[in-house]
């Protein structure tokens, strides 16, 4: 994992943890938001919205079903933001 990727995963972890009201350490790379942290649809939309603001990127809500774990989130954001690890 490159340093940039590690940093971005860290940023995304902070965003998700804040929305779900847990400590960042509790958000593992492949932990399921809904099953492991009781995330609901409004929180999912909020994660998306914060990412859009932070990285100035547009991500359609149709991607939400593909954003169930931190790793998933990274992949989706990377594809829309044009990140190359």
């Amino acid at each position: 994992m490159s340093q940039t990727m590690t940093d971005r995963m860290g940023e995304l972890r902070e965003i998700v943890a804040d929305v779900l009201e847990v400590e960042p350490e509790e958000i593992t790379d492949d932990g399921l938001f809904t099953e492991d942290h009781d995330a609901d649809s409004l929180q999912a939309i909020d994660v998306l919205a914060r990412i859009e603001k932070t990285y100035k990127v547009d991500i359609p809500q149709s991607e939400l079903p593909n954003m169930n774990t931190l790793q998933d989130v990274y992949k989706v954001v990377a594809s829309y933001a044009g990140w190359r690890d």
Binding site: V19, L42, Q43, I45, D46, A49, E52, K53, K56
Partner: peptide, 14 residues
């Protein structure tokens, strides 16, 4: 004031 007028905080809407 946001870049786009709809960039509001969803979780605060209620």
């Amino acid at each position: 004031v946001q870049d786009k007028p709809y960039l509001v905080d969803p979780i605060m809407f209620p």
